[in-house]
Nucleic acid binder design. Structure first.
Lengths: 163, 163
DNA sequence: CGTAGAGGCTGTAGCGGCTACAGGGTCAAG
DNA sequence: CTTGACCCTGTAGCCGCTACAGCCTCTACG
């Protein structure tokens, strides 16, 4: 193979052209996600357009929330033109499923937090704060009975036992 | 203060009664979130009901997605019965806001991923896979032109340069 | 030609919030 | 007296970066 001696760029230039942090590029090399490029006589990394392509792919996949492992697999799959792309499809759909799961979880939290936030709008004193009470006594849907908040304070991390 | 010598429990028992992992309890002590308890003559930790209260509070707050730092602050605030609970309110509302932000982000990803997933339903070959094409050439809303997927493969991490 | 400043190199530590060991000691039941 | 479950300590690992420290090199300006 002939040496395509043109258009090699340094790490910083690659970082700028792809929008991936320069340190992140080194990290990807370290974990074997991006091939170690040729080096200049003085040890500088010299990246080819192929590296740029690959790095852009990684970035896009990451922006969609795919894990580095998933990205790695996608890149491996991409090598194999004749293979069925069922696995690609499955990876993406599983990821969508994960995201749905996360969204649902967050929406649950959100509901619960708004319920709690409604209990006390910051107007009263800590002693009667029903937000703290709800956190202390979190039997779900409990009527936030008057728990004594200072019961929580007696075991503060700042006052070590041995002291 | 008189020694309340009853109802001290070991770490495992506290873990069981609160649903917090035994190692996690040690971790909380390490970072100063839960006070170091008394020790038995043989060095076993002996927790009081106050520790249990506090740990339950922590668990509930964590289940709602609050950071350990936020939990720490809430616990500090709870010490101060006469203080206004405006800060408590604010912490919770900020957290709700963060969650809204996360949900919106995930919903964006979800939309984009479904769009991409629609491009290719796993029926074709990698060579024509439009999911991979979309990831490689992710000018948003691009018509997923036929990019050559093997362009990504030439820079695989598994084939080191020096080899 | 000298120098300053930007950028490259390496290795390593840190983030959050745990979790999982290894390698020991202790305790209660059978 | 033994077995097995628990406890103790310290440390390393997870993910995906990010940020140093302490060097070396390249480029532009004077």
């Amino acid at each position: 193979m002939k040496a395509t001696s043109q258009s090699r760029v340094t790490r910083g230039a690659l970082a700028a052209s792809t929008g991936v942090g320069a340190e992140t590029i080194r990290y990807y090399e370290q974990i074997g996600l991006l091939a170690a490029p040729e080096r200049s006589s003085r040890g500088y990394r010299l990246y080819t357009p192929a590296h740029e392509q690959r790095l852009l792919f990684i970035r896009h996949a990451r922006e969609l929330g795919l894990s580095l492992d998933a990205v790695r697999e996608l890149l491996t799959l991409a090598n194999d033109r004749l293979r069925s792309c069922a696995r690609v499809d499955r990876l993406v759909r599983e990821h969508i499923h994960d995201i749905d799961h996360k969204i649902a979880g967050l929406q649950g939290l959100r509901r619960e937090l708004s319920r709690i936030a409604e209990l006390c709008k910051g107007g009263s004193k800590i002693g009667e704060c029903r937000i703290l009470a709800a956190l202390a006594d979190h039997t779900r849907d409990a009527p936030a009975k008057a728990i004594r908040c200072e019961d929580l304070g007696c075991a503060d991390g700042s006052e070590r036992h041995e002291a």
